[in-house]
Computed example of a mutant assay.
Amino acid sequence: MAATNLSFPQFSLPCRHHHHHHHPSFFTLPTRTRLGPRTQSLGSDFLGDFGARDPFPAEIASQFGEKVLGDPNTEHKILIPTVSASSLAQQECTPVSPLQLPMLEDDAQKLLRKVVGWRLIVGEDGLKLQCLWKLRDYQCGVELINRVYKVAERAGHFPNLHLEQPNQVRAELWTSSIGGLTLNDFIVAAKIDEIKTSDLVPSRRAWA
């Protein structure tokens, strides 16, 4: 059987700063040509859950299958995302009762997969979300804090922001009224993840 190579972007979750505005590197996934179109699951260890689904009525009506470029006999791989950071970012913060219990660490670990670059830390005020950014210089750190503040102001839920010399910003999110984390903290973290930072972070050296 003939072999066909498909290229997919390679993603990684940074521990200390954001990468989602850098150009991703690529790797090649070999597939094999078969008789007739076929969809195959890649499994859930790549990024989200993968699998096949039937087309929606609107997709059938649009004749989307006729618009696909490439060999129709090639095996296709389709990404079916689960609850993603983007859907979390689209949610709005809700009022928190002082009687509400903070989120359990197990639940926080599950939601941590939906945000990029954040980690869980245990502080004096309970469990917190923390994110670090390395910027080009101190002025870029000031600009990032301004952008984060605008997002937090719209959400009505504010992180603690620290501008640290020479070029680092640290953000911590938690709900102080109950001494721990709520869904609001993850919603704001996801909204912060969508902030443009590519013009503030150090540029990467491009090798020929």
Rank of each mutant, 00 (worst) to 15 (best):
T182A: 07
P9N: 04
F64A: 13
H162Y: 08
D106E: 15
L111S: 10
Y149Q: 03
R32V: 13
D49P: 03
F64S: 15
L69D: 04
L132N: 02
N160S: 15
L13A: 03
S203H: 06
P166V: 15
L161P: 00
L88Q: 06
L35K: 05
S7E: 10
S12G: 05
G179V: 04
R53W: 12
R32S: 12
W118G: 01
Q10F: 05
G141A: 06
K191D: 02
V148C: 03
L101D: 11
S176M: 11
G141I: 11
I192A: 02
H17Y: 09
R16L: 00
N184M: 06
P166M: 11
L6G: 00
F46R: 00
K134W: 15
S7D: 05
E153I: 06
G123Q: 04
F186R: 01
E143M: 08
V169I: 12
L120T: 07
L163C: 02
L42W: 00
A155N: 06
D199A: 09
I187G: 07
W174T: 05
S84D: 06
H157A: 02
E124M: 10
D193H: 01
H18C: 14
Q139K: 05
S25W: 10
Q109S: 10
L173F: 07
L47N: 00
L183M: 07
E75G: 07
A58E: 10
Q100S: 11
S87Q: 10
V151K: 10
W174C: 02
L88W: 14
G48C: 02
A3L: 03
R136F: 03
A2S: 09
E105S: 12
N167P: 09
P72D: 00
R154Q: 08
P81K: 08
R154T: 07
P9V: 09
D106W: 06
H20R: 12
